[in-house]
C-alpha cells in the first residue's frame, strides 16, 4: 500500500459514523409508535416494531464494529481517537436503550391509573423529551461534518456547543419527569397490581431516561471532539 494511503487511512470513519447514526435514529423513531401500540394493547404491532428494532440495532452494531476495526489505520485524524470512540459508544448506546425499551414494553401491564391518573400522558411526555434529546444529538453530527469540511474553524463550533447545551436542558426536564413517574409507580393502589408489573414499568421509565442521558453524553463527547 502506498505511503499516502497508510497516512490517511484506507477508510473514512466519519462517513461510517453518519451511517451508524442513521440506523440508530431509525430505532429512536420507533419509540413513540412502540409506546402507542403497547398502550393500545396492540400486541401484533408491538411485535412488529420489536423485530424492526432488533434488526436495526444489529445493523448499527455491525457498522460500529467496522469503525472500531479500521480506526487504528487512520493516522491523520482531526479528532482524538479516544474522543471519537467514546462518542461512537454513546451514539450506539442510544440504539441499545431502544432495544431495552422494547424488551420491557412487550411485558408491560397497565394499572388502573394509566389513563385516569394521567400516567399515560406523563410517560408519553418523558418519551417526548428523550426522543427530542436524541434528535438534537443527531443534528450535531451533520453540523460536525460541515465543520470537518471547513477544517475545524468558524461559527459552527459555537453552534455545536449550543446544541450540546440544549440537550443538557432537555435531559434535566426528562430527569424531573422520570422522578415524577417513579413516584406515581410507587403510589399505585390497584388491588390486582403485582409488584413484578411495577418492576417492568420502572424498567420502561428507566430506559427512556437513559436515552436522554446518552443524548447528553453525545453532546459532551462532541464538545471534546471540537475543543481547541
Amino acid at each position: 500500500m502506498s505511503i499516502l494511503a497508510k497516512l490517511l487511512g484506507s477508510h473514512a470513519p466519519f462517513e461510517l459514523l453518519s451511517k451508524h447514526l442513521d440506523k440508530v435514529m431509525l430505532c429512536v423513531d420507533l419509540v413513540k409508535p412502540l409506546l402507542d401500540a403497547a398502550s393500545n394493547q396492540n400486541q401484533d404491532e408491538v411485535k412488529r416494531i420489536a423485530e424492526d428494532v432488533f434488526r436495526l440495532e444489529h445493523e448499527a452494531d455491525e457498522i460500529k464494529l467496522k469503525i472500531r476495526d479500521h480506526l487504528p489505520k487512520a493516522t491523520l485524524l482531526p479528532v482524538s481517537r479516544g474522543d471519537l470512540l467514546n462518542y461512537l459508544k454513546t451514539q450506539d448506546n442510544l440504539a441499545d436503550n431502544v432495544e431495552d425499551l422494547v424488551l420491557s414494553v412487550s411485558q408491560l401491564r397497565f394499572p388502573s391509573c394509566w389513563t385516569d391518573g394521567g400516567m399515560h400522558d406523563e410517560l408519553m411526555a418523558l418519551a417526548d423529551y428523550s426522543v427530542s434529546a436524541a434528535k438534537e444529538a443527531a443534528n450535531m453530527l451533520g453540523r460536525f461534518e460541515r465543520l470537518r469540511m471547513i477544517g475545524f474553524a468558524g461559527d459552527i463550533i459555537e453552534e455545536l456547543r449550543e446544541i450540546a447545551n440544549r440537550i443538557g436542558q432537555i435531559e434535566a426536564k426528562a430527569d424531573r419527569k422520570q422522578f415524577k413517574l417513579v413516584q406515581m409507580v410507587l403510589e399505585i393502589q390497584d388491588p390486582d397490581w403485582h409488584f413484578a408489573y411495577s418492576y417492568v414499568l420502572l424498567q420502561v421509565i428507566r430506559s427512556l431516561g437513559k436515552m436522554a442521558d446518552n443524548a447528553e453524553s453525545m453532546g459532551d463527547y462532541m464538545r471534546l471532539m471540537i475543543a481547541d
Binding site: L4, K6, K73, T75, L76, V79, S80, R81, D228
Partner: peptide, 27 residues
C-alpha cells in the same frame, strides 16, 4: 514522496491533529 507526506501532515495539523499513528512515521 517524503515532501508530499510532510505537506499532507501540514494540512492535517492545520485542522488540529487529534490522533497520530506513529506507525507511518516509523516506516
Amino acid at each position: 514522496t517524503h515532501t508530499l507526506v510532510g505537506a499532507v501532515v501540514g494540512v492535517g495539523l492545520a485542522q488540529g491533529l487529534g490522533s497520530v499513528n506513529l506507525g507511518v512515521m516509523r516506516s
